[in-house]
Nucleic acid binder design. Structure first.
Lengths: 217, 217
DNA sequence: TATTTTTTTTAGATTTGTCTAAACTTATAG
DNA sequence: CTATAAGTTTAGACAAATCTAAAAAAAATA
């Protein structure tokens, strides 16, 4: 079993490797954990002793299979709790992260099984992120970032790759929530901003925003 | 805000003072926390510095009003989560304690308000214990311990004052669960054991068991 | 290749909660 | 009213997770 802090390190390493693939650097982890590189080095050694990461000095770390599974399990718990908070307790999608961050560390396999069943085995969390199964497998979701689409193309909002409350509230205001059908009506070359039609309304999104919206074509 | 450990100390002190009233002794806390007296003394000083307990050397401690409120708040969370686990996730009443022990430390007032509403504002947890409101007030429940009843008297099973899984499973087996109507049909002077009728069945309970069953007459 | 910059690690300290062993208070019993 | 027992506190140490400052390694640059 891992400590609260070890779990957070594993999760952070997992999220970073999902983006960068290859080995994860000390400083990147320090950033993600809001801590200092020296602390990360110490913790890395502990995780390496427990065979949760492979570590060579100055070379960064990589999760072992055991480590990956532990991390995915935390992600699974986090996302299931988020579904609970939104679907059952009527929280908004920008309000649930911090609470799920705490709930994800509650340790009971039975609890998560039953929660999963209670929520009717959801496949995605309120931000569209896939929920892995008990064995750590994800249902592969075929999606494209909105900024890659061309004029005239259309699709469904499937998820987001940025979870800050500010960003999520912005999307809410635009009406760009999960499941919405969109069509690209215009792209400004100068700044890459896009005009979309969503439910017969026309809205504008900056490139910064479109980069973080996942679309199913 | 209190740490996880501080919260557990407050809760333990609260539960002990509910039984003993007067000041709570160091060793009693050490027992309840499964730790040593020396550790308790250290923590007591910390809690006293934070004005959560009143403390005089060698005289034990007493919760201050702030401390009592913090403790009751944890009890409230614990009991609401127990209701959730039993009512929504179909756990049995002897399975929920350890999980609620973890969930009670999740820190979000909003979460607890919404959970309370989701559960339709329950007044009691699955063991019959009253759930305090946000302000720390309990609805006073008029009840008597089963072992105080006389032959011929009857009442409703309202709660239990012992929460070990073994005890709860024993009651389950006897059919002595919350809300059941009982009548005392016989008392053995020798050992204080009782014969009851519950739903037209006749069962026997030892004095040790009857002491821990709360009855509404 | 030599030098500078960036990144990572070590060394030593700090905080929180714990422990053991010894010292000290208070209660109990002749 | 002393002697012993019971209960409590202090002193000193330790483990977990963190930090700062300094040293070391790797990468980037001239």
């Amino acid at each position: 079993m891992q400590s609260y802090t070890e779990e957070n390190y594993l999760k952070t390493i997992y999220h970073i490797s999902a983006v960068t693939d290859g080995s994860v650097q000390t400083n990147a982890i320090a950033d993600g954990m809001q801590t200092k590189a020296a602390s990360v080095t110490d913790m890395i050694k502990k995780l390496a002793d427990k065979a949760l990461v492979d570590y060579k000095k100055y070379q960064g770390v990589k999760l072992t299979e055991t480590g990956r599974l532990a991390a995915v399990n935390i992600v699974r718990k986090h996302r299931l709790w988020e579904v609970f908070l939104v679907d059952k307790l009527n929280f908004k999608w920008d309000e649930v992260h911090d609470i799920a961050e705490q709930l994800e560390h509650v340790n009971s396999a039975e609890l998560i099984e039953r929660l999963d069943a209670f929520l009717a085995f959801p496949k995605n969390d309120p931000h569209g992120d896939p929920i892995p199964d008990k064995e750590g497998n994800f249902a592969a979701a075929a999606c494209v970032k909105l900024n890659k689409l061309k004029i005239g193309e259309q699709g469904l909002v499937l998820g987001v790759s940025e979870h800050s409350p500010a960003f999520l509230r912005h999307l809410e205001k635009l009406g760009l929530t999960l499941g919405k059908q969109i069509t690209i009506t215009e792209i400004t070359d100068f700044d890459g901003s896009m005009e979309l039609s969503v439910e017969s309304k026309t809205i504008n999104v900056s490139r910064e925003v479109s980069k973080h919206i996942l679309i199913k074509i």
